[in-house]
Amino acid sequence: MARDRAAGVLVAPGHATVPTTPVYQQRSGFSRWISRHWLDVLMVAPLVIYILVFMFIPVAQSIYLSFVAPRTGELTMANYQNIVARSQFRSAFVNTIGITIMGVAMEMVAGIVIALMLSRAFRGRGLFRSIVLVPLGVPTLVAGAAMLYFVGFNGYLNSFLLNLGIIDVPIYWQQSGPRGMFSIAIADLWKTTPLVVLILLAGLEGIPGDVYEAADVDGADGWRRFWDITIPLLMPSITMALILRVIDAFRIFDIALVLAGQAIPVMSSFVYFDYQSGSLNTAAAAAVILLLMILVFVVAYLLLVARRTEDVR
């Protein structure tokens, strides 16, 4: 065991008892490694091959397709020029970013409020917790379908607002622009808040109680405690929740497709519609732009947050 580690060889213990015989020493390094680790290689191979063939090669294929002309196969930027010139693509781009900003902002606020509530002891906490988790048990597609009944012209949201006298005439929610983005963001909020709550709750449990006791001795009130202790100590969980949510909000598909279809395109549904209409290359180009959006966000956020935390230290 110890010798294997020293040699830097990846060995599962329990089979490290194979004695090193002179026979091994005569062979080359590679065949010796294989004769020891053939079972490990055999066990990992299916997963590695599957992910390579059905994930990385398709991504590479999409990138390649986005740079070639449909029939001739020459390298070209025409696919990108084509989609950027289309208003449908521009609105998909704007909608995706708008939905992400609205949705994730609401999810983080709702997530922090609910997580703080759940971190207190109160009667009925178990029931409240189960209710909070219910949207997790609903397919994303169904979250979008359910929202159809709320944001429709004759839907429950209009009915509710009319009954309260807040509006006089029903609002058409499913139109492009901020209202449509808001409808989709609300459906996303409902579906994904439980996930944010769980991540933040795990973070809250990790904050030691004596930090709060010290704050109490110093006479900090609830608001000060929240901003000066809870939020800074919760930052790693907030970062994780935020990154996960932004990535998924950029990739939003089911909800937008069910709720608004072509009327309110998002990046993913734009890719699908272009593919469906037979334009594989422009679909691939839009998919590559979506990948870039995600990468730019993740890298920018990590750089900014990493720098900020260094400053604090």
Partner: peptide, 27 residues
């Protein structure tokens, strides 16, 4: 290496599904 591999598994999530599904469907 274990953390590296696990992180790699998580990072596959950054691929939008449509970038995979489009060529997969064609194939």
């Amino acid at each position: 290496p274990r953390y590296f591999v696990v992180l790699g598994l998580l990072l596959t999530r950054m691929f939008p599904e449509v970038i995979i599904a489009t060529p997969i469907a064609a194939n």
